[in-house]
Computed example of a mutant assay.
Amino acid sequence: MYIKSETYQNEMEILYSDANLATFSGTVLASNVDEGDEHGKKYVVAGSLIDKDGKIVTQTGASGSETLTTIPVGIVYRTVDVTNGDQPCSLIVEGYLRADRVLDGFADKAIAAIKTALPNITFR
């Protein structure tokens, strides 16, 4: 008998509520994703900040002087596989999102910049 074990990872729910949810289509750039998983797959996970060019927005700078790499225009709604190149995605531009999942790891200054750049998104 042959038994194969697979480990699956569920997508994290980033919505606080689907009320007033507004999404637009966008493109996520594969060149901005550094490393793949153990199977060589590259993913842009739900909740990632994306700029107008399709690049992932990250935090840079030393403690106390944190900034964002670029200005975000939306947040990825569902995880996107970019293993084979740039892919279309759904970007959240308005709605209620979970702050503990989307803003986790960002410093206070970076969070303030995110909230300013995305005024129609309410974090709870």
Rank of each mutant, 00 (worst) to 15 (best):
V82K: 05
L91A: 04
A19R: 08
V57S: 02
G40R: 04
L118I: 05
L21I: 01
A117I: 08
K109N: 10
P119A: 04
A22C: 01
S5N: 11
E13W: 08
D104F: 14
G36A: 08
T58M: 08
E66M: 13
D37G: 00
R78W: 07
A46G: 08
I50K: 04
V80A: 09
V73Q: 10
T79R: 15
T27N: 06
D37S: 04
T23H: 03
D81I: 09
Q9V: 07
M12K: 14
A22V: 12
M1C: 15
R124T: 09
T60E: 13
I50F: 01
G105M: 01
S90T: 09
P119G: 05
Q59Y: 02
M12R: 14
R101M: 12
I56W: 05
E35C: 01
Q87P: 06
D104R: 13
D108F: 04
T27Q: 09
G26T: 02
F123L: 03
K55F: 10
D51E: 07
L21A: 06
G105P: 04
N20Q: 12
A22I: 15
E11I: 12
A107Y: 11
I56V: 13
L29W: 04
A113L: 07
S5V: 15
Q87R: 10
T7K: 09
R98P: 06
N120V: 09
E66L: 07
Y96C: 07
N20W: 02
T122N: 08
N10L: 15
L29E: 07
E13M: 05
K42G: 07
F24L: 12
N20D: 13
P119K: 00
I121P: 03
I114C: 00
I50N: 00
A113W: 01
K115E: 09
I14L: 04
Y2F: 15
Y43L: 13
N10T: 13
R98A: 06
S65G: 15
I3Q: 12
S31G: 15
T60C: 14
T122I: 11
D37T: 00
S25P: 12
I114T: 05
K55E: 01
I111N: 03
I121C: 08
